[in-house]
Amino acid sequence: MFVRTALVAATAVALSAALLAPAAAAPAAGHRATREAVRTAVAAGVPGVTATVRDPHGTWSTTAGVGDTRTGAPRSASDHYRVGSITKTFVATVLLQLEAEGRLSLDDTVDRWLPGVVRGHGNDGRRVTVRQLLDHTSGIYNYTSDDGFARTYFLKDGFLRHRYDTLTPAELVALAMRHAPDFAPGTDWSYSNTNYVLAGMVIKAVTGHSYAEEITRRVIEPLRLTGTVVPGTRTTLPSPSSRAYSKLADTATGPTYDVTALNPSLASSAGEIISTSADLTRFYQALLRGRLLPAHQLKEMKTTVPVPGDPHSAYGLGLIDRTLSCGVHVWGHDGGIHGSSSTAATTADGRHALAVNFNGDWTGDPGTVLDAEFCGD
């Protein structure tokens, strides 16, 4: 998740013609458990849910609840939404493509590409590798856990004053550098959004282009992800979209606020992307089918480390391997940002994929919809 911690909501270039062609709808009788999980989430307090599945039967979508609590307008299967940390898979894909092209090594130190950036309070970019950024074994402090940052951008008074601030990647990293590392590089695992802000900066150092330009050129355009954008400082969502809601508090009680409009530079390359459920399923299917990475780089991406405290998840390079309740393994990522909670995943063969979004961030677990789709009926 882009928000303060990861995996909380879950515990918490060639394309085939078939991928690009419109797919027939799945049989109406299917996905009973998925429909039920979506309805249950709304009954438990999520304003609205949208989900899309791609499988050998075609493409199927379902929605429940509202996209606008003021007007009662329903959610749409075509909604654009902020995907949060699902952005990390896009970033890791670009870096692995650059490795395949011989333009960098994942074992390069961060200091090689960003000299002097990771320094102070025990931080040393000469001891941290690009690989350790991507699999969260760097030990670098997560800037979104900083108390001052949280008060300013996650809690009501701060957010309502600062929602349109522009923050640079350098500023976000500098905030993390005020804190000592969580552990020595390579000795443990801890989710840190700072890792992926640095990863985006490495992409620019290697290519001379922003991470947004490289994702657009290398992933979005080849896959024809027409609903996916890297918004930069754009504060609004493309149409169609629903409103996004948050309590802007550490509790799930109290008033609800519309947080749809915000400057996503606060998430940078750790969680900035906007997409749709249809695009996310297409992306993860293409990725796991080897259409974005050579076999060696895809194997690297799927080489995982354990996630402490979560025996059902392991983390690769911008990719989560999750074991569901029925024993099925799926590969994908979760994403959380103000007013938006999402998950997207596919089976290892890319044949069966799901992406789901809740337009509220204080209740519910999109992982229940994931489990229902792959383990239910």
Rank of each mutant, 00 (worst) to 15 (best):
A6Y: 12
L19T: 07
L20F: 07
A23C: 13
A23R: 15
A26E: 15
P27S: 01
G30C: 06
H31E: 12
R32S: 11
A33Y: 13
T34Y: 08
A43H: 15
A44C: 08
P47D: 00
G48D: 02
R54Q: 06
P56F: 08
H57L: 13
G58A: 15
T63F: 11
T71V: 03
P74F: 09
R75I: 00
A77D: 13
S78D: 13
V83Q: 10
T87E: 00
F90W: 03
T93C: 12
Q97H: 08
E101W: 09
L106G: 07
D107E: 13
D108R: 00
T109R: 14
T109N: 03
G122A: 09
T129E: 02
Y141L: 03
D146A: 05
A150Q: 14
R151H: 10
F154K: 05
K156L: 03
D157W: 05
L167W: 15
E171F: 06
L172R: 04
D182L: 14
W189G: 02
S190Q: 09
Y191I: 04
V197H: 05
L198F: 09
I203M: 05
K204L: 06
E213D: 04
R218H: 04
E221Q: 15
L225Y: 15
L225E: 08
T226I: 11
T228Y: 10
V229S: 09
S239Y: 12
S239M: 13
S239D: 14
P240N: 09
Y245T: 06
L248A: 03
A252R: 13
V259G: 01
V259W: 00
A261Y: 15
A261F: 13
L262N: 02
N263H: 12
N263W: 10
L266Q: 12
I273N: 01
R282F: 07
Y284V: 13
L292K: 10
A295V: 07
Q297W: 03
E300P: 12
S313M: 03
I320G: 07
D321K: 14
T323H: 13
V328M: 02
H329C: 05
W331D: 03
G335M: 00
G336H: 03
S341D: 07
S341R: 13
S341M: 12
A344I: 15
T346E: 05
A348M: 10
H352W: 00
V356C: 07
N359H: 09
G360W: 01
D361G: 10
P366C: 00
L370D: 08
L370H: 05
